[in-house]
Design a protein around this nucleic acid. Structure first.
Lengths: 222, 222
DNA sequence: TATTTAAGTGTAATATTTACATTTAATTAA
DNA sequence: TTAATTAAATGTAAATATTACACTTAAATA
């Protein structure tokens, strides 16, 4: 190595994932029972350590895949958490990522192997370290995201009803929305394709299914 | 230490600051001539390494003060940059922060000592590592911020004219704005106090000075 | 007294958001 | 077969926010 820096402290680099899913009426987060000390047995976010040859983004993807079996998942960096005492074992700076996944698609055996469970965002237990703080910041970020671009592609099944989409928005925003205004607004974004099929499980009349128009949806990405 | 983790790679933790300032018509960024190898003599963001007893936020404040002499500065974490080869000397993860300062208030001797210079955001030279990328993300963040909350308190002198505030918005957003609509909009936010004083430097008629109402301004903070 | 300079001001048109209630299609029960 | 039930589907008016656009005013200077 040609040059070297003066001596500076090195720290462990961790990644923690806030994994959002949506099921019927509720926005949920996937938590695991920590299986090593300290705080063994407590609930926590799924995390891991950065490897020498990967970026933080890649580490987050890897960790997510290990837990859910899914790849090509929507992932966004939230921020880095760095309190000197946040991890009692060693100085560790953790970068939090949030992910959006379709609950039905994750590999249940993998999550079971990691003793993972879905929790409604209203019922998050006390977590280790600063993980509750990470979650509340992730929810804020998701709320902001939902208010500036269409959301749901990653969280809903391929085909879904207007009602389901509205319930998702209500769960994220934490408030009820007017049905007619919601439909008007979402249709004006021009990202949905109305199908000929109906979902018959929710009512006698049945309700039309929609899917996202991937190209038009992606135009909203920055 | 009661527990220890398996062996994981440790990395250097750096902080880099994108320091925004505004002068007359232009949004500017403060850059320094790097005074150590590698890339000595090239332009770069002001940065430094995390110390054992501080958070990243605190490190960013410290670095900012070292360069400008200012404290209690507006600072916000942008994101962490982690490409394995981003720093050729050693594995270094850098967390970028952006700061908003009043150009007139910084200590010119300090910036001179660090061979620092202000550059218009249109004229940023090629910087070391991924610093150009950091800057472009910081500008995007600042644009978003300007479109969702009042901005300017940190970037303008205490007293300023409507015209100066409009020029600031135009510099941040990169587009011209209609004078009447701008005034209408900014007054509707109810964060300004109109003073009896006039600024006589810009025209024969003079233009009224305003200042921010700190309390009302802060209500927009999240 | 006329000219110059930038400041200061208003209105109409359009687009967006909000509030709000009835009808429809299909199934199930009588 | 008819009535009752259930959630889906639909429209409009009012309020608010945004955009486009041009003339008048105050003061200094020539």
């Amino acid at each position: 190595m040609k040059y070297h820096y003066q001596k500076h402290v090195k720290a462990l680099l961790a990644v923690d994932c806030i994994i959002f899913g949506f099921n019927q009426d509720n926005l949920k987060i996937l938590l695991i029972k920590r299986d090593f000390e300290p705080e063994k047995g407590k609930w926590s976010l799924m995390g891991g350590f950065l490897r020498p040859d990967e970026t933080l983004d890649e580490a987050a993807s890897r960790i997510l895949q290990k837990l859910t079996g899914l790849h090509d998942i929507y992932l966004d960096q939230l921020r880095s958490f760095s309190h000197p005492d946040r991890d009692p074992v060693d100085r560790t700076v953790s970068t939090a990522y949030y992910a959006l996944i379709n609950i039905e698609e994750h590999n249940k055996e993998l999550t079971k192997k990691h003793s993972a469970e879905w929790f409604n965002i209203q019922d998050i237990p006390a977590l280790i370290f600063d993980h509750n703080d990470m979650i509340s910041q992730a929810i804020n970020r998701l709320r902001y995201k939902a208010s500036t671009e269409p959301i749901g592609f990653e969280l809903l099944p391929e085909k879904f009803t207007m009602r389901q989409l509205q319930k998702l928005y209500e769960a994220i925003l934490g408030q009820e929305l007017d049905k007619r205004n919601f439909i008007k607004k979402i249709l004006s974004l021009d990202v949905l394709i109305k199908l000929d099929e109906k979902d018959m499980t929710s009512s006698k009349k049945g309700s039309f299914l929609y899917k996202f128009d991937a190209e038009k949806y992606d135009r909203f990405k920055i």
